[in-house]
Write a protein that binds this DNA or RNA. Structure first.
Lengths: 352, 352
DNA sequence: CGATCTCTTGAGGGGCCTCAAGAGTTGTGG
DNA sequence: CCACAACTCTTGAGGCCCCTCAAGAGATCG
């Protein structure tokens, strides 16, 4: 019942690390350092899935893909490409040629594993001959039993625990999961080519995230990182899509959620474009307090200065200076990383 | 068959202007300069709809609403409140007390008329005893005949022509229509309390707009203004909601559209937060060129400097200086308002 | 043809970014 | 458990980008 995975990758370090992750996840792993050896090993012991770098000496990823298609014994084995970030534009070529998915390096454990899982699951469905059409989908759905609800799906989905600073998903990779934050804190952020980072959203208990990429059916344009140790429920993308298709109520909720997101972002845009740093910092503090310490009169929040700076859209030093100002105006008090808001009213009124 | 509208408003200018608009739209209009006179006139000649200012001498809007409810002869007449922007927080009170809608002053012609139309239409449905539940909705739908499609709705909806600088809808008002731009150009923008304006989106032929407020079921948080004489199809909100409810394909499209909007906005956020003015201006120029002159090698675009500045999120003077720089670098040429992009490649590469 | 609006250029200054360096805190491995 | 490394936080100095105010030129409109 253990699935066999063939990993073809020329870089020793990446190959060994990746193999280790896979073995820890109870897969049987074969490795090969180039395409030629990979194909030989595949013929020797037919794998259930192949993970393959694109840029390799001797025989590259495209070559492997081509040979797989040609060889009857190997045709039908799903293949996932590994690509470096810089080669991302090449991936279309791979997808067009018939690769089933791709992962960009560097990738997080969960990205690797969820890509594999979702591919193996699809393969299994294919083998049991469900039609891949929307009709087949609903057929599948009824095969599952009664009508799905969001709750039932959440209860039946896997739960993963993440530590501080761990990445949940990375910009540029393709989504395979919908994430639901059961406890802890997560942020999503985008970065520009100067390496500057802007925090897009802050997530707390009960929030979903990673859905825009799924809904748009495109690669992530943002990364998600854990800021406080978190328990995350991972819902397979297909389950989510089925739910969306079968349950009009859920569609409606999603539409409202998205519309709300758009409105909030527009306000943030206006603020970042024209408001002074003081206003933006005040806004960041109040937003965080309302999000994570709702109802408190003098809430305390604890975030790294860098995180705060990225939320306000400024440099770390500038943020610190503004905090010092606030402190000397008795708007806040600082104890280490923790900031207590002493005058919510005044801070709130500063924003507009 | 002409509907009778009673307009209660103490400000002479507003009352007369509004009455004029209503008469031009073939309504029979009675006017009153305060609540007391209004109620008397209402008793004399029962109107189909009452539009009523809130802040008034003698008897204010809340008083009118209260008396309407008490008087058997007048109960059931729909009432729309007029409120000044500053009083907006008060509107909840009015809605809770039983007002059917509200319009904030200043309002555009189309906002006034669409609020009235949609209210009268709802009243008519109420009179013909359709249940106001979702089930009643679908009942209504089948009463209309076959399944609706977006196309059929667009073809059967009213078409309005707008001139340059006309507002389509204004921030703070409640939505009654979905808009479809058949020709011309429209922008949507938000402004902060310093009066600074940021352009959110630019719309061209074939674009929908004004949907986020409808979908979120909230007041507009942005305004829409025509920049090039436009022909706009107005779809009543209810038709749109019905379509959404009855047609899963449309829901899916909308979800994808919204997700795409979110992604684009996130990129814009990053750009405005950290990119230099040069980059932002280059980005604005390229975006406009791609939107309105797709495929051109050396596209010419024509927008006021102020509009351009609001797109880039900067002051008009700063924008002009940057344009001068670009001109001296032979990236663009300027002829009056019109800007021709001479080196799309270099401009595009500047952005990232 | 004057009034009004838009575009452009100049001068000045302030907000915020960057670089730098020291203090404080956290993590780690012998 | 301590010493050292690595990271985070804080403050200073310098300067640039871009905003603001101002004023004139050009365009548009009734």
């Amino acid at each position: 019942m253990k699935e066999r995975i063939l990993l073809i990758e020329d870089n020793n370090e990446i190959r060994e690390n990746t193999a280790e992750i896979l073995e820890l996840s109870a897969y049987i792993v074969d490795t090969a350092e180039n395409g030629k050896i990979g194909i030989e090993k595949a013929l020797l012991q037919k794998p259930d899935l192949i993970i393959c770098d694109i840029m390799m000496p001797v025989l590259d990823g495209y070559g492997v893909l081509h040979l797989l298609g040609k060889n009857e014994k190997l045709a039908g084995i799903p293949l996932i490409f590994l690509t470096a970030k810089s080669e991302r534009s090449d991936f279309r070529k791979g997808m067009e040629m018939g690769a089933d998915d791709y992962i960009t390096k560097p990738f997080t454990d969960i990205e690797l594993l969820s890509a594999i899982e979702s591919r193996l699951k699809k393969q299994k469905i294919k083998d049991t001959n469900f039609a891949p059409t929307p009709e087949g989908m609903t057929e599948m759905l009824s095969a599952f039993g009664e009508k799905k609800t969001l709750e039932s799906i959440l209860n039946n989905s896997e739960e993963v625990s993440f530590q501080k600073k761990q990445l949940v998903y990375r910009e540029g990779n393709r989504p395979h999961m919908l994430y639901f934050l059961k406890s802890g804190k997560v942020k999503t952020f985008i970065s520009n080519d100067d390496g500057k980072v802007l925090t897009n959203s802050l997530l707390g208990e009960g929030d979903f995230f990673g859905y825009t990429a799924l809904l748009e059916d495109a690669a992530y344009h943002e990364s998600a990182e854990v800021i406080d140790d978190a328990l995350i429920v991972t819902v397979p993308a297909d389950e989510f899509r089925l739910l969306l298709q079968s349950n009009a109520e859920v569609s409606k909720k999603i539409i409202q959620l998205l519309s709300k997101n758009i409105r909030e972002q527009e306000e943030k845009l206006l603020s970042i474009a024209y408001n002074s740093l003081r206003k933006r910092v005040a806004s960041a503090l109040v937003t965080l307090a309302n999000k994570y310490e709702p109802g408190e009169e003098n809430p305390s929040i604890s975030f790294s200065r860098e995180d705060l700076a990225n939320i306000a859209g400024t440099a770390t030093e500038s943020l610190i200076r503004t905090l010092s100002d606030f402190k000397s105006e008795s708007l806040i008090s600082i104890a280490g990383t923790s900031i207590q808001l002493l005058n919510m009213k005044k801070l709130t009124s500063m924003i507009n």
